Simulated scan of single mutants.
Amino acid sequence: MRKNQCKKAKNSQNQNASSPPNDHNSSLAKEQNWMENEFDELTEVGFRRCVITNSSELKEHVLTQCKEAKNLEKQLEELLTRMTSLEKNINDLMELKNTAQELREAYTRINS
């Protein structure tokens, strides 16, 4: 909705700028000029509000993404730790297998 407000303000400014004053009387021209200046200030304020709002939304989005990245980094560290543990277990099992083979061969030689 905020983005629409910015667009509406811009459209209104374009419409206002394109319509020339009907009467060239000095008092009406002054009043028209005053209204345009006031509208420009309101548009500037509206624009600033839009920028501030969008900046705030962007900041929130960046903070959320940062938190998600930290969570993903933590999960990655946990997975790497588990993988290291699994690799160690596999190496231990391979050593046990080799030891069992050596024992079997030794037993076979003794029985022969």
Rank of each mutant, 00 (worst) to 15 (best):
T99R: 14
S85A: 12
K74Y: 06
K88N: 10
I52R: 07
I90G: 00
T99G: 00
E87V: 04
E36I: 05
A17V: 11
N89Y: 03
P20Y: 14
M94G: 01
E68G: 01
Q101H: 10
V45Q: 11
R82W: 03
N37K: 08
D40Q: 15
S56A: 11
T53S: 05
N37E: 13
C50G: 11
N98C: 02
A106N: 13
K7F: 08
D40R: 14
K7S: 08
K30V: 05
A100P: 00
N25Y: 09
T81K: 10
N71Q: 13
E57H: 05
T99F: 05
Q13F: 14
D40Y: 10
M1R: 02
I90Q: 03
S12T: 03
K88W: 01
A106G: 05
D40N: 13
F39H: 15
L76A: 11
N22L: 15
L28T: 04
L93G: 00
Q32G: 01
N91C: 01
N98L: 15
N14E: 15
N14M: 09
M94S: 15
N111R: 07
P21T: 08
R2L: 09
E95V: 03
Q32E: 14
K30F: 07
K67T: 01
A106K: 15
T53F: 12
K8I: 12
C6V: 05
M83R: 09
E105C: 02
S112N: 07
K7T: 10
K30Q: 10
